[in-house]
Structure formats: structure tokens, C-alpha cells
Nucleic acid binder design. Structure first.
Lengths: 239, 239
DNA sequence: AAGCGGGTGCAACAAATGTTAATGCCTATC
DNA sequence: GATAGGCATTAACATTTGTTGCACCCGCTT
């Protein structure tokens, strides 16, 4: 059941059986969310953190004018709100972008892990640090990349992250977002999002239909994106 | 000497004298950096983390076309690269935006803190989580705010953060960035950066000259920015 | 079968933003 | 006190991005 979490945390450093047991012990109940449902509400003060077992979710904020911006995409094996364990108050919401199967980790038990299991604590901390590294990469993409490059970068990132948790199929992966939702990821209008996807298609690096993205030319895609996966910390070393 | 760090960490939860001593004990030597110097190089694998005692620094990435994007601004009391303690490899550089006085915390001693001082460990973890929260707010600003609102939001954020570490002077603070550097924060051209600063001046909410920003109308500025400081976690509560 | 709704795709035009270039004001330096 | 360089500011023009509106397709319901 927690295989994705073990794959996710275990990509950075070895995870012992005892540590896996501690993680499993922190888990409480499971739940399913339908597409579009809020998994965590902005402003709430959760007493548990949410692990995605299956499905795709996103963090988002909404402005007064109604504009929505996604600040991250979360794949299976990700804690969507591990930060709330210490930040306490959610300053953003989390929405299910597909049917989501999740499991809740109790904050009191996470706290016990920080008291008794330093190495596992560091791995959980690291998980949130990688989150931050992804945020920084998104900031760079939004500020200084062309929109085509930004989208290419996102495709590279998602492919690599999904590969870690074994959610890719050859060079394809499932991406259930509508173009309107993609626009809220890149910070564009729907019309322009459509243009940018068209541009990536036109140069022949991806096919994109029926919510399935297939990378046709990884080398060229990576070049357009200037994608360097260093920020994902995928090397296994002592932490 | 470490007063800014204590103020920064202590804003989220009480910091005991024993914890202050542990932090002080993790520190090694100090150093000064001149404006424009790299404090940490991209791609390096530091064995210590850098605390800013005084001055302003920024994280940045540079793209192949020469474009630079700052991903954060760091004020006194901030660890600029605490994440490198666990991420190991720097995927971005850190540059001094003013003369910087810094002090280095040894990673081996930070690791000892994670083994022996769970509460302090959580506070350090929290510090990196607030970093992430700021990143998310920047993503929203870049994606969905008007440029004027983005700049207003940045001014609000910097004012509040500098106030915590007692670097404000009434409603003014020192901001040593040139407009070209500001453009690399907001992801704009220099010319447009100038237009946006002009727009904020024109509505009379700030004066901005000689690297000094003065907030003339906090209420209105906050309104333009839709600034809500929740994401900075400035409430003191058990963590 | 007809109608509805959501999503994609596209065209025409409007607005925002980038580029290039010029001007003027400082300050450091010789 | 002359000069050069960095920076802020503005203008004119080019490019990118947003807005509005519509056509089309597909799955679903009536």
C-alpha cells in the first residue's frame, strides 16, 4: 500500500525496514476523493498529513479576481501537506485533479518520529526540501523561460517524477489536466496555453491527446526545456 | 552576534537558552562578502550552511541565453542554504546583493542537532518550510498577479520580514537592488520594471529613491498586493 | 434523434511586455 | 574639472500574451 512512499523517500537514501514500519505506524485511515474535490482546505489546521497513494493532486491559491494558480503538482508517493505538520495553518488549498486515493499520517505520530528516529526525520525533512527545490525551478520557469520551454520543462519533470513511482508507461504518462487547468499551472490564459501546447506538438517532441502525454523525442525535449534533474536530488546517498 | 537568527527562529515558537547555545555551538567562522560576490556556487557541495548576519543576498539560476532569475531574497537571520545540509548538491547559486557578513554552520554539528535536539530540529525544518511557503507565494505572484500587484506584494513581504529582524526604520527599509536586479526578481525586462515601479509611485503608496523604500500608505499597498502574511507563519505556537 | 455541456482549436483584435536606442544624472577617478 | 561608466528614465516600435467569439467534436441525457 505504501510502496509509492517508500520509492519516493527511498530514491534519496536507503530506507530501513524499521523506518518503513515507523512510517506505516504513523498512518491512520484512507479515503477517496473525486476529481475536483478539495483534499485540504485553505485556512484549515489539519492534525494529519495527507499521502497520495494514487491519483494526481495540486496545491493552489485563488486571488480576489478569481484567478487560480497551482503552485505544485503532487504525484503518488507525495505528501501533499507534510509542511502543515509544522506550519500548522494551511495558506493554500489542495485539490484532486483525478480520483485520488489517499492516506492520512497523524501529526502526533510524526512528532514521535522526530523525537525518536533522526534519520527518518531527515528523510521527511528532505522530502519537503525537494518540494522547495521544485518550487524554485518553477519560479525560474515562470520568470525567465519561454512558455514553450516552460511547458517542456514541466513535461520532463513530471515524466521523471512519475517514473520514480512507476507511473509511466514507456515514454508515456497519464496527465488528466484539461488545458484550462494546465493554464493555471503555467499562469497563462487558456487560449495561449492551447497555442503553447500546439507549438510543442508542432516541433514533434510530444504527442498529447486523451490526457496521455507521449514523449517522442526526449533528447530534443530536454534541450528545449534545458532540463537538468539535479534539483530533484535523485541520487542515493547518506542524508 | 546571532541575535537575528534567534529573532527569526523565535518568531515561530519559543527558543530556549539551551537551544540558542546549540545553535551557537554549530557555528564556525565568519566571513565578509562584497556586493556581487558569490556566497555559494551552483553545483558545489558545501559542508556548512551559511547564515546571514548582515546584508542582503539572493538565490538565483542562470539560463543558457544568459537570463537570470532570483528565486528568493535572504535577509539577516536567514540561512541561505540550510537545504544543502540534506540536498547535498547546490542546484543554484547565492549572491551577495550588498556587503554581507555571514557565519557558517558546520553540517556535522547540524546533524548532531538532529540526533539530539528534536525541537530545535523541528524549528530548523520549519525555517526551510517557510522558505517553501514564500516560494509558493512568489509562484502565485508571477503567474496570476498583475506586475504592479506583484511588486506591491514583494514590498509588503520584505517589509514584514525585515521588521522581524529589526532592519526597518519606521515605514522605510533599505533595498540595495538596482532596477535591473529587481527585474531579475520579478522576471521582467529592465524597462518594464521601471514602468511598474513608476506605477506604484504614481498611486502614491511608496516612495523609492536612493535604495530606500518608504511605505506611504500601508493599507492601500496591502490592498493592491492582496497581502496576507499567513504564509510567513509569524504566530508563536508550539511546533 | 435532438439537445446539452465541456473541452479543444482557431481567428481577429486589444493590451501587456520586450527591444533598442537615446538622454540625463550621478559618482569615481585621474 | 574633465571624463567614463553605471544607472534611471523615456520614446518608438516589435513581439508576446490576453480577450472575445465562434466552430467543432464527443459523450451524455432526454
Amino acid at each position: 500500500m505504501l510502496e509509492s512512499l517508500y520509492l519516493n523517500l527511498g530514491q534519496h537514501d536507503a530506507l530501513s525496514d524499521a523506518e518503513k514500519a515507523l512510517l506505516a505506524g504513523a498512518m491512520t485511515f484512507e479515503r477517496h476523493f473525486a476529481t475536483g474535490q478539495d483534499i485540504v482546505a485553505s485556512g484549515s489546521r489539519p492534525t494529519y498529513s495527507t499521502l497520495i497513494l494514487d491519483g494526481l493532486a495540486a496545491r493552489y491559491k485563488v486571488l480576489e479576481n478569481g484567478g487560480r494558480q497551482f503552485t505544485s503538482l503532487q504525484v503518488p508517493g507525495d505528501f501533499v501537506d507534510l509542511h502543515a505538520f509544522l506550519l500548522k495553518t494551511m495558506d493554500h488549498g489542495i485539490v484532486a485533479l483525478s480520483p485520488c486515493h489517499v492516506m492520512f499520517a497523524d501529526h502526533a505520530r510524526l512528532r514521535a518520529i522526530t523525537e525518536q528516529a533522526p534519520h527518518l526525520t531527515r528523510l521527511l525533512w528532505l522530502d519537503t526540501l525537494v518540494d522547495g527545490a521544485i518550487h524554485r525551478e518553477w519560479i525560474v520557469a515562470m520568470g525567465r523561460r519561454s512558455k514553450t520551454s516552460h511547458l517542456a520543462h514541466l513535461v520532463c519533470e513530471l515524466f521523471v517524477r512519475l517514473q520514480v513511482v512507476q507511473r509511466t508507461n514507456g515514454m508515456s504518462f497519464h496527465l488528466p489536466l484539461s488545458q484550462a487547468e494546465m493554464a493555471d499551472v503555467l499562469g497563462l490564459s487558456v487560449v495561449h496555453m492551447n497555442r503553447v501546447i500546439g507549438a510543442l506538438r508542432k516541433v514533434g517532441v510530444v504527442s498529447w491527446a486523451n490526457h496521455t502525454v507521449t514523449i517522442l523525442d526526449w533528447h530534443k525535449l530536454r534541450e528545449i526545456a534545458e532540463f537538468d534533474p539535479t534539483y530533484l536530488s535523485m541520487t542515493r546517498e547518506p542524508r
